[in-house]
Design a protein around this nucleic acid. Structure first.
Lengths: 285, 285
DNA sequence: CCTTCGATGAAATAATAATTCCATATTTTA
DNA sequence: TAAAATATGGAATTATTATTTCATCGAAGG
């Protein structure tokens, strides 16, 4: 008979992997072979039968049982449960997953859970954008931006990282642009250079930074078309934007992600770059 | 005997769902009940047994067989295969999807495809991080950062947006930090203020910005611990980093995403905030 | 070199699950 | 409303799968 391990059974896949890795060197050859196969092909373990896994991992079915028992499970079936649970977890709705993670964090902050939370929230945001974003709006925005002599990029605080990325990427694509930075009041001067042949790209989420709104309004009143990325149809930016995107970012621990805003910004940037090249007779990238 | 449907069997889940929905109104009551249950609880179908599903959907096991046969499958097992395939697919198709999108874009740039490309690349990056990131490294990084008097944040070019986000978020959490900006050479002065009781958080990807590397090296030589986010074990940052993360970002159209770097940065930030609060005797967030 | 003990393979057995069958109920249609 | 066709429940059957057993192998220790 095989000794049960002194540590308790791992209930989730991460724990199981840790357990396997910690024993890696003490496992008998065939068992180790199965262990390696299991970590490399978790889906196979989740769905296969003892016999089918035995074939594809090159051992006998009974070795699967022994492997399971070595780890302290009472049979292959309960080991398999962990592999199945993993697939379930992964596909359970984002909302569900997030609330699980939030709950887990309540009882002492586990850093890994925090990371998982942001990863999940980011994925959720990306999914939401893939489902909701309107193609025609995207085309109009890119068309508008591609016609600009200079693209003025306007964002503060939480949105500022996105703006700085766009400025950097447009620069690499040789598209003239001006990042409107300073909270310190330089912006009025920069703003006064803009003409109706330029375009403003502004990014602002609730609570909207007053500077951003005012700059955008000022530019709009001078006839400069505004392309806006914001989070609601009630955003002040919507009033004077020529084209606007509504982006719903998920949050975790009170911090909203930037994943889908960032992806949209990248798409706008590359789209503008392509349109410019096409226009100037070059072949598209 | 039951007629096979004239349309061929759906091989993937989407096709199956379409088939079910198209027949919704012509299905017998119990069969329809199972159909509704199956679409609402696909994971149950994937993992359950005919008997267990029968119980939770409130029918007889034989009805599951009939349901399967109504749709043209030859039994419950082959229907279940489609539900299982769905769970498998989800985990391994980013690469495939991206190459499809890349190919589509070759023949004339479709803006919506570009966006999809960035969304997919971002998701892929997030998934990769969820699978690979080491918990212990994360804990050490947060612990190191939480002990800092001041956190110096060092990043240029493509990584700069991440740094600016971290600076903003740390500020909101009342954690003292200094964003080392200017390409213009202000940094030597800022750098000279740092002491071994401070910590540097630096972010740099190939091709590594020379300024970032030099600043990080200079600080490290003065005894300031370095936490690095980079893209390879061969990154110059690795040599003198106390803790370092290897982050693999997917790219689309030559532009690498920042999704997982950003999520990691958020987790670090919030983790540090929590650790600080815990340390100062407050209850964690 | 022999002994012992854990590891392994293969087949037997037990458990579980899918499928079929048939009696009964329900709906449809003439 | 009667007859036919279809659907359903429940149990019996068949198939599949996990698990156990046992003989053999191979390495470690004396």
């Amino acid at each position: 008979m095989i000794d049960a391990p002194s540590v308790e059974l791992p209930r989730d896949f991460d724990g199981l992997r840790a357990l396997i890795l910690s024993r890696r060197d003490t496992l008998p050859k065939r068992i180790a072979q199965v262990a390696a196969y299991a970590l490399d092909n978790p889906d196979e373990i989740a769905f296969g039968t003892a016999a089918s896994i035995a074939v594809s991992s090159g051992v006998q079915p009974s070795t699967l049982i022994r492997f399971s028992q070595h780890l302290g499970f009472d049979g292959f079936t309960s080991l398999q449960g962990v592999f199945r649970e993993r697939l379930r977890e992964r596909n359970s709705s984002y909302e569900e997953r997030l609330s699980t993670l939030r709950a887990e964090i309540q009882n002492g902050a586990d850093n890994h859970r925090i990371l998982e939370g942001f990863l999940t929230a980011s994925s959720k945001s990306l999914d939401a954008m893939a489902r909701t974003l309107d193609q025609a709006t995207l085309d109009r925005a890119i068309e508008t931006l591609a016609e600009a002599e200079t693209i003025y990029i306007l964002a503060r605080r939480r949105s500022y990282p996105v703006a700085s990325y766009v400025a950097y990427a447009l620069g690499k694509l040789k598209v003239r642009n001006q990042l409107v930075e300073s909270a310190a009041g330089l912006s009025p001067e920069i703003v006064s250079f803009a003409t109706p042949r330029d375009v403003v790209l502004t990014i602002s989420f609730s609570p909207y930074a007053p500077d951003t709104i005012e700059d955008a309004r000022a530019l709009s009143e001078r006839g400069v078309p505004v392309v806006a990325i914001t989070d609601s149809a009630f955003s002040p930016l919507v009033q004077f934007a020529k084209v606007w995107f509504e982006v719903a970012e998920a949050d975790f621990g009170g911090f909203r992600t930037l994943a889908s805003t960032m992806a949209l910004a990248m798409a706008l940037t590359v789209g503008v770059g392509d349109a410019r090249h096409a226009r100037s007779g070059q072949k598209p990238r």
